[in-house]
Design a protein around this nucleic acid. Sequence first.
DNA 1: TTTAGCACTCACATAACACAAGTGCTAAGG
DNA 2: CCTTAGCACTTGTGTTATGTGAGTGCTAAA
Lengths: 348, 348
Amino acid sequence: MELSKREKIILRAIVNHYTKDGLPVGSKLLANQLPMRVSSATIRNEMVYLESLNLINKTHSSSGRVPTIKGYRYYVDHLIQPNPINKNDEDIIQKTLNGNFSKMDEIVKKSANILSDLTHYTALTLRPEQNNVRHLKGFRLVALSNYQVMAILVTDNNEVQNQIFNISKSISGDQLEAVVRLINDKLTGMSIPDVIKKLQTEIPAEITKYIHTPSGFLSTFNDVLDKAARNQFYIGGELNLLNFTDSSNTKELKSIYSLLDKTDDVSKFIDNHDGPVSVKIGNEIRNHLFNHYSLITGTYDAGQFGKGIIAVLGPTRMPYSKVIGIVSAFREELAKKLITYYNNYYHR
Amino acid sequence: MELSKREKIILRAIVNHYTKDGLPVGSKLLANQLPMRVSSATIRNEMVYLESLNLINKTHSSSGRVPTIKGYRYYVDHLIQPNPINKNDEDIIQKTLNGNFSKMDEIVKKSANILSDLTHYTALTLRPEQNNVRHLKGFRLVALSNYQVMAILVTDNNEVQNQIFNISKSISGDQLEAVVRLINDKLTGMSIPDVIKKLQTEIPAEITKYIHTPSGFLSTFNDVLDKAARNQFYIGGELNLLNFTDSSNTKELKSIYSLLDKTDDVSKFIDNHDGPVSVKIGNEIRNHLFNHYSLITGTYDAGQFGKGIIAVLGPTRMPYSKVIGIVSAFREELAKKLITYYNNYYHR
DNA sequence: TTTAGCACTCACATAACACAAGTGCTAAGG
DNA sequence: CCTTAGCACTTGTGTTATGTGAGTGCTAAA
């Protein structure tokens, strides 16, 4: 699909206006405002052509034009003018990321908040993932009392998971201590696949020396492994959806919120990228709930931590160039911050 | 304020109708429907009196009547007819509370979800609190690696808090081990006030034997103590606010949501009770944001765990008798469940 | 004290109308 | 051949008038 120079200017102007004001854009407005001197009739003629290509639309037979999904797509791919982040926003990122964090996850979580503050949309952040198989760096059991045990698991990306579980009355303190020692000895330092294998084969047999029915133990270990394996993500500004979603449709809104609660579903549509910053518009998100939303995702490369994803969810009618600018800048700052963080605490 | 029998019947009917349909209630409707045989004119006369007492209101000069806050209050205090929970809801409570929980908090959290499902409103639950000063039952430091430490704190209500913190490069593994031993020896078993005192006096001095600037350590301990001391609460069905809040007013809605995020504020208006189940209507909640909301709170006595609170937040126009029935039943079931739970795991 | 009757009020729905913004089309001009 | 002035046409929006229905307060009679 090849557009003439003038058609491009017109389409760009339509998208710019519409994302700014949210009102259909008419030919007269553009005639008075475009860089070149043309009459509104000429613009109307061009608009007919753009509409025939399904790049723009009318809301009713005599209204101004509005971009279609395809129009936004063309705009983002060919017409967008870069809008680098402004100094002020840059400062906010710098300042906020420079807090004191005691866990990598806290930085990623905070990032979701900053990103939503900057864009006034909803932000999602996924912590970095190593692409190789994850190994178990440490596995501890701490007996808190004679009926409560905390399982602590450290993976080689330095993530820590922990979970408390209770032990039924039938186990004595001594038995427990024995099991703690047994498991610490056997599993610490192993790779996760190995841990899972052992949990199903060797370990149960060993444990029965001390405890008759060890199923409670084992299911807890699996829980913790699960938690560690799952792609956790953080959300910032979820209430911002209220700002631009047609609030009459409560049902749809609730569906979206409950979708945002499900880790698996979210990472599904946040995933697969082309390039460092990618834009998905409306039905390109492949979920009918998001037909009027767009998703700007960016990857960040946090060195030893691996690669992570940040994303902004807003209306299809969003100022793409501004949001893309923010996401671009943010992915770089976040990467820098995490690498510094890694060097400060992990590299020795 | 004394009402005649007939006035009571009329007021009750008005509240019942209005909470059911949300439409102003007119005199003709009531005339055809009340137990006694009276004309609409008579009812109108009575209504004038009820309105003079500020128990009911008109939405405009020729509309039917609507209860005022004072009217709801009178209804709840004098006119309400008990509506015990139905078998089906009862079953749901039983079944859901009978899951397998590994932490007392999980039960309290789940309760918020059940309660909101049953009422279709928003539910808040506070975990039980012992009213005496809390003691520190156990305090552990677990070195996960030579740069990460997990602090674990167990209070005498068997709550466990934990937090991970990083140690700057300047500390060696040996130093760390020494500090871990020191702190475990000195603080385990003490009461919280004592712990705090020691953290400010004795401990810093001791630690400096091993580490030059122990301020990082100490602030983390304080963080964890803080977390344990705070009244945590859980929310279920927060999105249900969308069902009955005038969704045009996005701003107010956001204020409410951000209020519900703040522990202190929430426990403030959930607190102070009269009796096992209490009802606060509109401005009685003492926060202008809730002028069109009512709050049904119930206490539950979980034996050794102490006493906790459950609450349902809905519109002033809610079916009080049904919701009160549910809260009443729930507080008892939850108490039972927690006592059983305690006996199974803690009492030996 | 109750009630039938009636005039009155007000929200709500509907239709009629003008208006503004925008369109497509046509015909003339560069 | 492209551009544009002009014009008829469409549609959303806002205003006004008008009718209807549910409800009220008041009065006068039972």
